[in-house]
Write a protein that binds this DNA or RNA. Structure first.
Length: 597
DNA sequence: TGTGATAGCTCG
DNA sequence: GTACGAGCTATCACAC
């Protein structure tokens, strides 16, 4: 049963009386209300806190209806927040509250942070992590909905004070109670991951989000000019080749042009007619001159609309992403608004986007990426002697694989067979089937099946490991990573397709999730060694961690110390965890992101 | 004018 | 209907 008491605090004396009466060893649940969601631009409208699981206090800072005089003044609020931030803190998605406080008041907590959203995510990443649904699940309590008190196109600063107080106080008390409830429910191993890895990781993320990465707007303007010229020219050529003007971005219109007007032949795919995706177009590339034009147009338009245009709308020297700590089922991070984890790299035109991400004057960008981390984990888990020995001796693993499964054919075309081996190695981690491997390599399904068979004949312990894990997932209903992070699956035994899909997901999560474990451990170590939390918002140290892209970290470092600091980071990353194989990092530096790797 | 689904593409 | 994990943009159909 959930209940709470709420109280508005809008006089200074009461505020400090309450705060000073809280035992310094008691954690405080903290929640702030703002007039928007973009942490870098919003104003803190008020904040609530709870230290006993019963009383929720709301401190108004910016409420339109009552005016400044009835609110707590900023300098008073700052002193109050400094007291709160000298306690351990509890929050629900506390990264948001920390960022808003940092940007409004320039202060950052001095002690540990605990997060009920992260804890719930660790317990089961596949559940809704919203405070109201967790409260419904664990307390059968229905929270006041944000939409009930904030009309559309309005914001929290217009909410009548009493309602605001009731709402905000409920958030603080609910979070306090939920956090403790989850503590009582979760396994010790999950709690250990939370306390030793994920809770400290909040600070690593806050720091990266706060840093951002410098961009060269002139560079992007020039790129926009050349790509938009290119797009206009391509569009004209495409219309000419089609004999009709149409919207090239419309797959529907394009399908009509290609498969009806021009009479090109393809296999129908999808629910509503013809597919026009890249693989379909590539299969048709010699059958009509319009096809290569379309492929080029698609690539250029993607760069233009997804990257160049949005980046040019940013009116600051640096660009700031938001990392989602709990955005995946595997333990990985995700990045949004904008997503800086999918900046193009594979094609030359795509890579040009990276030239617009730069180091500020006097600095360089440094990238460190884990080499073959998922295959190293496969070697570690399976204890396959060939894999272990290859990694121990730093042998090219794809070449070694090719050597074993294509023994007699190797002389013919080495790089061809190395590529096949590479696809198989990737496929193992994805839980491949012969069909998809055949598609990827553009060979027959039978041939692909033979390759897979040849692989397992040469790597029997890999086969044993994968089958053992599938069996385990099926029996237990969950998988575990290197450090014990879990992902649960519900098996409907009447649906074979879903069973197989879950087993692939489960096996893949072992590698993807363990790799995430390792890089997060590294990031925490790097953060606490090279970045000092008390430097937040002021002049930072000589090195800043800017981005994580799953198996890679990007730093901005003062030029003169770049070499020494990056070798120290490399040392941390390579020694973060003892596996049965060495962990290896590649390091590169440059003035722009395009210069890395 | 807004919203959700679909198709397609970017990355690791 | 059989290769894992993400996020963004455009079009299109349909609601208000």
């Amino acid at each position: 049963m959930f209940s709470y008491e709420y109280k508005l605090i809008n006089d200074e004396k009461t505020l400090f009386e309450i705060l000073n009466n809280i035992n310094m060893e008691s954690p405080i649940c903290f929640d702030c209300e703002s007039n928007g969601l973009e942490v870098r631009s919003v104003d803190m409208v008020g904040f609530s806190f709870c230290a006993d699981g019963v009383h929720g206090y709301y401190v108004p800072l910016l409420h339109m209806a009552i005016g400044e005089d009835s609110c707590i003044r900023r300098e008073v609020a700052k002193r109050a927040l400094e007291i709160i931030f000298s306690h351990d803190l509890i929050g629900h998605n506390i990264k948001f509250d920390l960022s808003v406080t940092l940007h409004n008041f320039g202060i950052y907590p001095k002690r540990s942070c605990f997060d009920s959203m992260i804890l719930a995510w660790l317990m089961n990443p596949n559940q809704s992590l919203k405070l109201d649904s967790l409260m419904q699940t664990h307390f059968s309590h229905k929270m006041i909905a944000f939409s009930e008190i904030v009309p559309k196109n309005s914001d929290f600063s217009y909410v009548p004070l009493d309602e605001a107080c009731k709402y905000a106080a409920e958030d603080a008390v609910a979070t306090f109670q939920l956090y403790h409830k989850l503590l009582s429910l979760c396994d010790e191993s999950i709690l250990n991951i939370a306390k030793s890895l994920e809770f400290p990781f909040i600070h690593s993320l806050c720091s990266m989000e706060d840093c951002g990465i410098a961009i060269d707007l002139n560079y992007f303007s020039t790129l926009r000019e050349s790509i938009s010229n290119k797009l206009m020219a391509l569009q004209e050529q495409i219309h000419k080749a089609a004999g009709v003007e149409f919207n090239v971005n419309s797959t529907k219109q394009l399908a009509q042009v290609l498969f009806e007007n021009l009479g090109l032949q393809t296999q129908k795919r999808g629910k509503s007619g013809y597919s026009t995706d890249e693989s379909t177009l590539k299969a048709l590339k010699d059958s009509h001159p319009i096809i290569p034009l379309l492929l080029e147009y698609r690539e250029a338009f993607k760069l233009f609309s997804t990257y160049i245009e949005p980046f040019l709308k940013i009116d600051s020297k640096r660009i700031y992403t938001s990392f989602s700590h709990t955005g995946t089922n595997t333990g990985r991070l995700s990045s949004k608004s904008p997503n800086l984890q999918n900046i193009p790299v594979r094609s030359e035109m795509g890579k040009s986007i990276r030239g617009g991400f730069v180091a500020e004057s006097g600095n360089v960008l440094v990238s460190l990426d884990y080499s073959q981390i998922e295959l190293r984990l496969l070697a570690h888990f399976s204890e396959d002697s060939v894999l272990l020995e290859s990694f121990a001796n730093n042998i090219d693993i794809h070449a070694k694989t090719a050597g074993l499964i294509f023994k007699d054919k190797l002389d013919e075309n080495f790089s061809h067979y190395r590529n096949i081996a590479k696809s198989i190695n990737f496929g193992l981690i994805y839980g491949m089937g012969a069909k998809k491997l055949a598609q990827t390599l553009d060979i027959s399904q039978k041939e692909a099946g033979a390759y897979i068979k040849a692989y397992f004949a040469n790597f029997p312990s890999v086969k044993d490991f994968l089958e053992r894990k599938k069996q385990e997932i099926l029996e237990r209903g969950y998988m575990e990573t290197l450090i014990g992070r879990r992902r649960y699956f519900e098996f409907d035994m009447s649906n074979e397709f879903m069973i197989q899909a879950h087993l692939r997901e489960g096996v893949n999560s072992i590698f993807q999730g363990s790799a995430a474990d390792l890089i997060k451990l590294s990031m925490n170590r790097i953060f606490s060694e090279i970045e000092q939390m008390q430097r937040f918002g002021e002049s930072r140290g000589e090195a800043k961690m800017l981005l994580q892209i799953h198996d890679e970290l990007i730093f901005e470092i003062k030029e003169e110390s770049a070499d020494s600091i990056s070798s120290r980071i490399k040392e941390i990353m390579e020694n973060v965890y003892e596996l049965r194989v060495p962990l290896v990092c590649n390091v590169s530096k440059g003035y722009t992101w395009a210069d890395l790797k």
